[in-house]
């Protein structure tokens, strides 16, 4: 992998890669990301042509299909970076960033034209996961957020082991006022999502997820945070099925004060009505 871009001057403008899952399932995570960045004085632009980075196809072994999407992604984001229109690309997802920074290289390995490989490397150097960008690039570890309750942190696999990002989200969480950060057993163990794996090997995936869910419950946390909505979907799917009280929310929402133990968790306070008390927390998502 190419070395990460360094910033002699503080970055001013970034392009948001919101990821397809956040776009369609969790727009509140996308909004939280935007607001977090804006609070740090960063201007956010959103290239509307963006769709998916191609990871699902790549993970399933469909490289031709993935390559088409990867080229598309490079065509959309790389000119912005190269022309200096944006200083960086930021995404609220460790695994989608991994796709861009680590696996595009694999995809374009076989490309007869080296052009995309080169351009992908340029893009990779300037593409950051949200917490990585906040802590490593902006040097911010306190975003002045508040959460009155117990938090814990699940280290998603790609974020932890491909990107090597772990201390960044933890540093941010440590500075959340009012929050007690409790340890999570097996925090670095896979939740069992793994893309198509969750379908193809449903029973194994479930067994892995149940272990994760049990550890989260055992941790006593009100809310478990992470940096990937895919893992979040998986673990919440299990917690919800088991009718558990605790749940998983994306770190951006915690950092952006969108989560409240007493309130309707997992929702954006700005645009969501209070849930009916009888309903489980997930049900209240995204109602307007």
């Amino acid at each position: 992998m190419t070395a990460k871009k360094t910033f002699p001057n503080p970055p001013r403008r970034v392009a948001l890669f919101v990821t397809c899952m956040v776009d369609m399932l969790y727009p509140e995570v996308g909004m939280a990301t935007v607001e977090l960045l804006e609070k740090q004085g960063i201007e956010v632009v959103f290239p509307e042509a963006q769709t998916c980075c191609g990871q699902p196809a790549f993970n399933a072994g469909f490289r031709d299909e993935a390559r088409v999407l990867a080229r598309r992604f490079v065509d959309i984001f790389e000119p912005l970076v190269i022309s200096g229109q944006v200083d960086a690309v930021v995404a609220p997802s460790g695994s989608c960033v991994t796709m861009v920074t680590h696996f595009y290289d694999v995809l374009f390995e076989s490309e007869s034209a080296v052009e995309y490989r080169y351009r992908a490397a340029n893009l990779a150097a300037a593409t950051f996961e949200l917490t990585e960008f906040l802590v490593d690039v902006l040097g911010v570890t306190d975003v002045k957020s508040r959460f009155d309750g117990k938090l814990t942190y699940h280290a998603s696999c790609h974020l932890l082991r491909e990107l090597g990002v772990d201390r960044q989200p933890r540093a941010l969480l440590e500075n959340v006022a009012g929050a007690e950060l409790v340890p999570l057993d097996g925090a670095d163990e896979c939740c069992g999502f793994g893309g198509l794996f969750a379908i193809k090997n449903g029973p194994i995936s479930t067994a892995m997820g149940e272990r994760k869910a049990a550890n989260i419950i055992k941790s006593g946390a009100d809310v478990a945070t992470l940096c990937d909505v895919s893992c979040m979907t998986h673990i919440n799917g299990l917690l919800s099925r088991q009718q558990q009280r605790c749940r998983v929310v994306h770190i951006a929402q915690v950092l952006n004060n969108q989560v409240d133990v007493a309130d309707s968790p997992g929702t954006s306070r700005a645009d969501v009505a209070a849930p009916e008390p009888s309903r489980r927390w997930q049900d209240a998502r995204e109602e307007k």
Binding site: P27, G30, E48, A198, G209, N236, R285
Partner: peptide, 19 residues
């Protein structure tokens, strides 16, 4: 294979790009 053991969230009423 997913919903046998896990719930899935509904798609957002308003996607991020629309918001």
């Amino acid at each position: 294979a997913w919903t046998q053991s896990r719930d899935f969230p509904p798609f957002a009423k308003k996607s991020f790009r629309r918001q």
